[in-house]
């Protein structure tokens, strides 16, 4: 019943999501000289630093693609994911001046943060495609499935954002725990190294467990869809199950859990928000 009301509200307040997302972006990028360009500069610079560090100095191999391309196909979605969640964690707390006074669906606060990150993410994809052309890399035929992959990742981001934003109001340690978890997660996905290397250097059971991480599945999906990664020599560990089903089911589940937890704690916000 209440879920149905929330759905109707979502439609009614869609303008608000947009306004809040725009507020987020403007607050971040209005004053700097490079403005919105920072959206693009940051992930590409991160990828460049990793390239210099891991490829040029440490000679980590990158399989069939240039190391930079290997990195950026993972770093870009990752920065979308991590900025969504790390931005959302304080979204409710930072809006304490409106929480108690205006009646609006509070879940829109984290949702709009994810939406703002999504707006950041999309131009990055275009620049990435430009890089692919510059590096003479064939763009995969599966690229038309990209929106589906983005949808799966967005559901996951929204679910986790709802979860951490509501928990943060009551347990203020969440943001710090989250920083650690996000850092660990980055190195638990095949972003800076290749999946093949991990499989070769670890035991079979570890690799099988590693593959169950939904973020590994998402990273693989992005590579498959954008640059046709793994299509020539698919490691046997990658299968339909852990690449598509696990991330999809996890996204759906975390979305529902996030929604339920947020609803449960929403009534307590007014008690905790100002202390």
């Amino acid at each position: 019943m209440s879920a149905w009301v929330d759905m109707k509200n979502f439609f009614k307040y869609r303008g608000l999501i947009y306004e809040l997302a725009v507020r987020d972006m403007k607050l971040r990028y209005r004053r700097p000289f490079f403005g919105f360009l920072w959206l693009l500069i940051l992930p590409f610079c991160t990828a460049f630093i990793y390239k210099v560090l891991f490829s040029d100095f440490m000679h980590v191999t990158s399989g069939e693609y240039p190391f930079f391309i290997h990195l950026i196909t993972a770093i870009l979605p990752w920065s979308y994911f991590s900025s969504s969640i790390q931005g959302s964690v304080k979204s409710v707390l930072d809006s304490r001046n409106i929480i108690n006074q205006i009646s609006f669906p509070k879940y829109l606060l984290p949702v709009s943060t994810v939406f703002a990150s999504l707006i950041n993410f999309l131009p990055g994809i275009l620049v990435l495609l430009g890089f692919l052309i510059a590096f003479h890399i064939k763009i995969s035929m599966l690229i038309f499935l990209l929106p589906v992959v983005i949808l799966i990742q967005t559901c996951m981001a929204v679910g986790l954002s709802l979860l951490v934003a509501s928990l943060q109001v009551i347990y203020r340690d969440v943001e710090y725990v989250l920083q650690i978890v996000m850092m660990a997660l980055l190195f638990l996905t095949p972003a800076v190294y290749t999946l093949e290397e991990l499989i070769n250097k670890t035991t079979a059971s570890f690799a099988a467990g590693y593959m169950l991480n939904p973020l590994v599945g998402i990273t693989n999906l992005y590579r498959i869809v954008i640059i046709g990664g793994y299509t020539h020599s698919m490691p046997k560990e990658i299968n339909f199950m852990n690449t598509l089903i696990v991330p999809s089911v996890f996204s759906a589940a975390i979305l529902i859990i996030g929604y339920i937890v947020f609803n449960k704690y929403e009534r307590k916000f007014s008690d905790y928000i100002n202390v």
Partner: peptide, 14 residues
């Protein structure tokens, strides 16, 4: 900008 933000918080569309 505040008019737009505030009005959309009150549920008025653009």
């Amino acid at each position: 900008e505040n008019i737009y933000l505030n009005a959309s918080l009150l549920g008025i569309n653009r």
